Simulated assay, not measured.
Amino acid sequence: MSAADPPAAAARRRHHRLLLLFVVFALTAVALIADLLARQQLSGGNGVDLGVLQLRLAYNSGVAFSVGDQLPAPVILAVTGAVTVGIAVFAWRSAPISRTIQVVGLAAIVAGATANVIDRIHDAKVTDYFHTGWWPTFNLADTYITCGVVLVIAAALLESPTGTAEEDPR
C-alpha cells in the first residue's frame, strides 16, 4: 500500500482476497463431501432418478469429457495440479483489483479445480454423479468451474469502457 492509497481501497483489496480464500475453501469442502457421499450412497449400481437429472456414480480418469483418459495417472494429476496452481495464483494476484463478481467467479473455478485434483489423488479418477443422459456425467466441482467461468465473463462484460472495473460505492 502506498501513501497515496486511500484506506477504503486498501480495505477492499484485503476484503477481496479474504473473500477469495473463504469461497475457495468453502466450495472445495462442499464438493469433496458431495463426492464422498456419492461414492457411499451410489455405489453398487444404486441411483436416484430426479427427472431431468439422475444421480448415478461414474468415474473419469481423464479430464473434461474424458479427454486424456489413456494417459498415465501421474501425468494427468501433474498437469491438472499445475493448471490449478496457475489459476489460483492468477486469482490471488488479480483479486485486489477485480470486481467482486469476478473474485467469486475465480474462486469457484479454483475450488472446482482443487476439488477435482484432490478427488483424483484418491484413486487417479474423478468421482462424477450428475447424469442427464444428453451430457457427459459430471460432479459438483465441474458445476463450480462452469458457473465461475460465467461469472468471470459477466464481470468482463460489466467492465467500464475505460477498462477499469467500477465498484459499488458501498
Rank of each mutant, 00 (worst) to 15 (best):
M1S: 14
S2A: 13
S2T: 14
A3C: 04
A3G: 07
A4F: 11
A9Q: 14
A9E: 14
A11D: 15
R12N: 12
R12E: 12
R12D: 11
H15L: 11
R17M: 08
L19E: 05
L19V: 12
L20M: 04
L21A: 14
V23C: 09
V24P: 00
V24M: 02
F25W: 07
L27A: 11
T28L: 09
V30F: 10
L32W: 00
I33E: 11
A34M: 11
A34T: 12
D35R: 06
L37K: 10
A38I: 10
L42R: 10
L42P: 05
S43G: 03
S43F: 06
N46L: 10
N46I: 04
D49G: 01
L50S: 08
G51Q: 12
V52A: 09
L53A: 08
L53D: 07
Q54H: 12
L55M: 11
R56M: 05
L57G: 09
A58N: 08
Y59F: 13
N60K: 06
G62H: 07
G62D: 10
V63Q: 04
V63L: 12
V63H: 03
A64R: 01
S66R: 07
S66V: 01
V67F: 13
G68P: 05
P72N: 07
A73T: 12
V75T: 12
L77E: 13
A78Q: 03
V79Q: 02
T80D: 05
A82E: 07
A82Y: 07
T84P: 04
G86M: 11
R93D: 05
A95S: 12
A95Y: 04
P96R: 11
Q102F: 09
Q102T: 14
V103S: 05
G105I: 04
A108I: 01
G112H: 03
G112Q: 05
A115P: 02
N116A: 05
V117W: 00
I118M: 02
D119N: 13
R120E: 10
H122G: 03
D123G: 13
K125I: 00
T127L: 01
D128H: 01
F130C: 01
G133F: 02
P136N: 02
P136Q: 02
A141D: 00
A141H: 00
D142H: 08
Y144S: 00
T146E: 00
T146I: 06
C147I: 13
G148Q: 05
V149P: 03
V150S: 05
V152C: 08
V152A: 11
V152G: 03
V152P: 08
I153R: 07
A155S: 15
L158Q: 15
S160I: 00
T162A: 15
A165N: 15
A165L: 12
E167W: 14
D168P: 03
P169I: 11
P169K: 14
R170H: 15
R170F: 04
